[in-house]
Structures are given as structure tokens and as C-alpha cells.
Design a protein around this nucleic acid. Structure first.
Lengths: 119, 119
DNA sequence: CTCCTATATCGATAGGTATCAATGTCCTAG
DNA sequence: CTAGGACATTGATACCTATCGATATAGGAG
């Protein structure tokens, strides 16, 4: 099944291969990637990320997000902080509102490691 | 799933397409994917997966793996069970040894959701 | 300044989990 | 059959985290 995985387009030789499946991950690599995956491994955070990304302008304020969930505002705030601290969300305060925006590069890095070969 | 949404050339796919980032994830989707990511979100398990995949024949027995880690055999066995239970590793017993093999489709599914598109 | 609203932080709690030592299961050798 | 080795399971422990209510902070309205 991995025949197509071996055919790489030149441009994506780096980004496209799945290091995870092609050579043993170093301890350092594993410990660097795991926290990113951990931040993603939460249904609420996955939905938050998705909601922010698909919101108008690619960003959303907490007030846009909180109503979607059956959770208190501190809990939403906590999840946003986790995503921001790990580098998956950018944060910018404008007036009273705080806007979050997905850092797509970070997400792409993870995807590339896991299965970039699918591209 | 949402395969019909992704009728793009490989180039476009690389540049832009990520289901997670293009439409809000449903609660169901999020709750289905999160456990997979959770299973991956562990340095030891990432390394195990990587070791199994890059081992000769794409599979490895526990005895091949255990020595690489500074952990007891039950702990390694635990992590392998987590990866197997979630569907990321296949398991086959041959004689006294148990061989594990990566289920690349499962990994590709996750990668596709995060940042790639299945071909 | 005072009040209100948006968001963050704090403290507590309940549930999850990585790890170990001890033990169980199952296969093969003899 | 019995012994030994490969792997899994169990039970205990220590740590982590998702969630809440309460509270803090900070900006805008009046």
C-alpha cells in the first residue's frame, strides 16, 4: 500500500514525507511533537481550532466561540490558552475583544510528520 | 467522509486544503478523532510507532522494541496495547513472539483531517 | 470616577494515565 | 509432563488535566 508513498514530488521532499514512518523518531523529536499532538487531542480544542479557522476572516473572538459549547467561559478560555501556548493559535486583543487565529504552519508541521505522504 | 469536498490538484491540496480548517468540525467528528490523536500524543508511543514502521518488514516484536527504552516490559506492553486498541497497530502472534505492524491507513486518516487530503 | 462587559486567572475537585512490581497466561523445548 | 521465556494483566501510586465557581483585570459607556 505504500507504493505511492515513495514517489515524492521534488518540491515536497521535505514537507511531504512522513518521517514518522520512514525512520525511527529521535527522543528529542518525539518529545517535541507529542505536546503539539496532546494539545490537539481534545474534542473541544479540535472544534475550537476548526471554528476559528472557518470563521469570517480566519479569526474569531471568544464571544463568537463560547456560545457554541455547553461549557463555561473559563473553560473555553483555558482551551484557547492551551492552543495559544503551544503555538497553534495567534492571539490579538482589539478593544475589549480578543481575537484568535490559526497558525496554519504549526498545524501543517504536525500533519507532515504524521502523514504528509498523503499529499 | 468529506472526500467530495477535496477535488483539488495535488498542488492546491498542499497549499490550502485541510478539512479541519475549512469547515467546523462536528461534535461527532471531533470526538472520533480526538482519541486517535490522544493515542499519538505520547513520546514513547510515537517512537514505538516509528520503530515498528521502520523495522525490517514493517513489523517488529516486543523484544525488538523493549530494549530501546528505559522502561519496563509491562510499560511497553501497555503503550503497544493503547496503539493497538485504537487501531494504529496490527497485532499477530507467531510462536512465542508477538509482532506489531503499523496500520498506515489509520494514520493517513488523521493526517488527512489535520492537514492533508486523501488521494 | 463608576458601572458594565469581555476575557483571564485562581483554587478545588474529579477523573484519567504513565509507570512500576508482582503475577498470570501461553508457547516451546527438553 | 515440567521448566523457562515472551508477553499481558493487575493493583497501587503519583502526576496531570478538564471542568467549575469565584474572582481579577482591563476596556468602553455614561
Amino acid at each position: 500500500m505504500s507504493k505511492s508513498l515513495l514517489e515524492l514530488t521534488p518540491v515536497q521532499t521535505v514537507a511531504c514525507c512522513s518521517p514518522l514512518l520512514h525512520e525511527p523518531l529521535s527522543v528529542d523529536q518525539a518529545e517535541r511533537v507529542a505536546p503539539l499532538l496532546k494539545a490537539l487531542a481534545e474534542p473541544v480544542r479540535l472544534r475550537l481550532l476548526s471554528l476559528v479557522a472557518s470563521h469570517v476572516g480566519g479569526e474569531a473572538c471568544v464571544c463568537d466561540l463560547a456560545d457554541t459549547f455547553d461549557l463555561t467561559q473559563p473553560t473555553i478560555s483555558h482551551h484557547l490558552k492551551v492552543l495559544h501556548d503551544i503555538g497553534l493559535l495567534d492571539r490579538s486583543k482589539r478593544g475589549v475583544w480578543v481575537y484568535y487565529k490559526v497558525r496554519t504552519e504549526a498545524l501543517a508541521d504536525v500533519a507532515a510528520l504524521l502523514g504528509g505522504a498523503a499529499r
